[in-house]
Design a protein around this nucleic acid. Structure first.
Lengths: 127, 127
DNA sequence: TTTTCATGTAATAATAATAGTTACGAATAG
DNA sequence: CTATTCGTAACTATTATTATTACATGAAAA
């Protein structure tokens, strides 16, 4: 698919698509081609790409809203709070990331397929 | 302490302090008084206030950066992704909140006291 | 009772983070 | 050579958060 097509599907801008996909390309999850017949192609089979791969490819963005805002705060209260909560956040993050590793694009594709079939069946119903 | 004093400590604006503290007051974690000698007071002993109490008092703000942006998306792909990750997020959130419940203000106060003593000792060192 | 101090709150402004847009260069197939 | 299509920089727009201003309300002290 081209960036324009993807942008239409995602209801966003082609440049935004390229920016995001760039990360996935660098990680080898997709490939891109220019010119006629160009666009984006999967770089690996669906079974071999997990949500974790994507998370990593996108630069491991913060998962939590409340990261430690200040890395090494001078404020002793802030230090105490950070110290008390650091482990909890680290553990929760590790758990989430592990779960991301269990979901492949194949998982999603299968679920999508099921939903799509349901969707079509519903449209055929009278009414 | 008054909102002005707290704002100075937190390097923010008194009105911002009042806005935030309002939530804590409604939950009974603090009390406020107007006029002469007014300001903010703890509503309970330090041992009886957990980070979870505060989280709740502040309206249980989103802990994750990626909530399900659309509640019931029409997009079937989005539905599949949400379905695959909902449990993971819910579990991680439950775990975090449980941990918040284990940390009391007394915990933080004790740690702060230790850090403060260290801080003062460091200042007394030659150099 | 008047003055002073403090919170309560609405309305507005400023800031920062994110997303979207424009523009143009580079590569590629026909 | 031309029509595409990505790559990317620069800029604009939008949104969410935070900060500020302004003023009303309440309470203690003079």
């Amino acid at each position: 698919m081209t960036s324009d097509e993807l942008a239409a599907c995602l209801q966003t801008n082609p440049v935004v698509v390229r920016r995001t996909m760039a990360g996935l390309r660098e990680a080898g999850l997709v490939t891109s081609g220019r010119g006629h017949g160009g666009g984006w192609t999967l770089g690996r089979p669906l079974e071999d790409v997990t949500m974790r791969d994507i998370y990593t490819a996108l630069g491991e963005p913060m998962l939590f809203q409340m990261g430690n805002v200040t890395e090494s705060p001078g404020c002793l209260v802030e230090q105490a709070v950070n110290h008390a909560l650091d482990d909890a956040f680290r553990d929760a993050e590790a758990m989430l990331i592990a779960r991301l590793g269990e979901v492949t694009l194949a998982t999603l594709a299968a679920d999508f397929k099921r939903r799509f079939a349901e969707h079509r069946a519903a449209l055929k119903q009278p009414g």
